[in-house]
């Protein structure tokens, strides 16, 4: 464990909690892509099946359980409790265009052709694109609530910190996982445009709105 991985995980946790609190406090999931949240729930479920097969540390196990629990709680709030506020018309990204190619890629390119390993690979590939329905929704409506942008910023920060973590691990532990690194870099690139808008608009006190 190094400081970059730890702060990355905490930033990820902060993002998840910010989103849950936003929905809970405003009693509304307006502007939130339920499809992205379902994808994240699938990501955590398929990746953390190793909870049943291997123990790494108390930290590792508890974070996995918290991530999975929060992901399903978020999906529950969006599709059940506050369903009336869910903006389904604007959440029109076709997720099958992500899930099907990602599934195929996981079967073709993996470290080991075994059931758990393919599911792990699938989750890594899927996570790298799971935010696209959310970004698509923002580009469609042309705006995002400030709290939603804080959520996205924490998620993007988590990815950026993981890249620093991999550089660290490469130099100091001779560790690298090419699948995780390539997918992680792709995922981080997807946030670049958003980072630019966040710094130039949200941090200057303006609402994030895109030119028509």
């Amino acid at each position: 464990m190094n400081i970059f991985r730890l702060t990355g995980d905490l930033s990820h946790l902060a993002a998840i909690i910010i989103l849950l609190l936003k929905i809970w406090k405003t009693r509304s999931c307006a502007g939130i892509s339920g499809k992205s949240q379902i994808l994240f729930a699938i990501v955590f479920t398929t990746r953390y099946l190793d909870l049943l097969s291997s123990f790494i540390s108390l930290y590792n196990t508890s974070m996995k359980v918290i991530y999975i629990g929060c992901a399903y709680a978020t999906v529950y709030l969006i599709y059940m409790k506050f369903r009336a506020t869910y903006d389904g018309n604007h959440d029109s990204f076709r997720v099958e265009f992500l899930v099907v190619p990602v599934g195929g890629l996981a079967v073709l390119i993996n470290h080991d052709f075994s059931f758990l390993e393919i599911l792990w690979t699938f989750s890594i590939y899927l996570e790298s694109v799971a935010i696209l329905p959310q970004l698509f929704m923002i580009s469609k409506t042309g705006e995002a609530e400030t709290i939603t942008t804080h959520y996205l910023f924490c998620l993007g920060l988590y990815r950026a910190l993981y890249i620093v973590n991999w550089i660290w691990r490469y130099y100091f532990e001779a560790f690298f996982d090419l699948i995780a690194i390539v997918a992680g870099v792709v995922q981080t690139i997807l946030y670049c445009d958003f980072f630019y808008l966040y710094v130039t608009k949200v941090l200057k006190g303006k609402k994030l709105s895109l030119p028509a």
């Binding site: 590792n60 996995k64 991530y67 470290h111 390993e117 792990w120 996982d177």
Partner: peptide, 10 residues
């Protein structure tokens, strides 16, 4: 590269 079967990252 080194094959990873135990994934210690989240």
């Amino acid at each position: 590269w080194q094959r990873q079967t135990l994934h210690d990252e989240l």
